[in-house]
Design a protein around this nucleic acid. Structure first.
Lengths: 185, 185
DNA sequence: AGGCCGCTCCCTCTTTCGGGGGATGCCGCC
DNA sequence: GGCGGCATCCCCCGAAAGAGGGAGCGGCCT
């Protein structure tokens, strides 16, 4: 599709983050389209690595819906664009031209979700760790044992998680966190 | 990509299930590629509708990972192939030729997942209803009120759900059901 | 007609959750 | 050097959850 545009050329393709990095070194493309879900090295890490070596790199994330937290991570890593695979071809080429011209382009759905949560506190590392263990069926006591902390501390973390995510109980909290891309299973 | 194959031609495209059905009527293609996530009419319903009118229709589902339950529904609806969007182009064209020749083709990952769960009891309608309400943070008592049944019945359904899904608690059950495509949020 | 299955309801009892409260030590930032 | 954020731990307590049981009823298939 890209090769079909008069003003574009497809110079390289990669199957994972490491290949992406070495392909970037070899070709130094004007624009890079990046998937976030890749084996061996995720897209976010690949963006970070590429931008560390080439701060001017213009990277557009192209992915299926993964939640606002995922998008936020990509943008913080230096992505200049964020698109969903469900979008039309026209939007893709427009975004490529737009980013090439130096602008940022975040898909409207993602942008509005990001906006919804800008005021929210993000979960801390420990809170995410606790929630991830809760998601796979661990009781507070089991989470405590696995993390080497007291059950009381786990309860404190969970209380914070419920408040921050606006969840009604632990089950709801896990669902919200999965939808928003805060935790992965 | 398809138009680039010597033995293939792209005859129509649709944005939702209804368009897919009328486009099918108009063109009656040898092979149909179907996404499951579409607005207004889902892919599964579209497959059912098309196969009701054209029992010989050969439909390949092409989707992102949605769990084995989703795939099972598609196959029961009459899909002849099931592929993941993450797969390589080569596999896609091979599958198209294969299905055109009358064979069935289910992606290996999906096939092994389906195989894992063939022996399992599926959830009943009520069990899924209960679980869906639990997923959004309802306590048993609230689920009971919403469904117009007693809390004891809700507990019975949840007991069955935990057993059937092999889950450790309600939170785990929801995560398993989401992963397997048994419920959607 | 009998049996299976899904849906419904009931009881008991222990464990776990979740909402309050408060407190302490550490670390980085201004 | 103080202040905020994070992580840790503690107490109380009512309400849920979940693991046991058992049981009736209606529909569907054989």
């Amino acid at each position: 599709m890209i090769a079909g545009q008069a003003d574009m050329a497809l110079v390289a393709e990669a199957e994972n983050g490491e290949q992406a990095l070495s392909a970037f070194r070899a070709h130094q493309p004007d624009i890079t389209l990046m998937d976030v879900r890749m084996p061996t090295m995720g897209g976010i890490d690949a963006i970070t690595a590429i931008r560390a070596e080439f701060p001017a790199a213009r990277i557009i994330v192209l992915t299926t819906y993964e939640g606002d937290a995922q998008a936020l991570r990509a943008i913080k890593a230096g992505a200049a664009g964020y698109l969903l695979k469900s979008m039309l071809r026209k939007e893709l080429v427009e975004t490529i031209r737009s980013v090439h011209a130096g602008r940022r382009r975040i898909a409207a759905d993602i942008a509005s979700e990001l906006a919804e949560h800008v005021a929210d506190d993000e979960l801390t590392v420990r809170e995410r760790d606790v929630l991830a263990l809760v998601a796979v069926g661990n009781a507070n006591k089991e989470v405590a044992a696995r993390m080497g902390i007291s059950e009381e501390t786990v309860k404190t973390h969970m209380k914070n998680v419920l408040t921050k995510l606006g969840a009604r109980d632990r089950t709801h909290a896990v669902v919200v966190a999965l939808k928003r891309g805060i935790i992965d299973i």
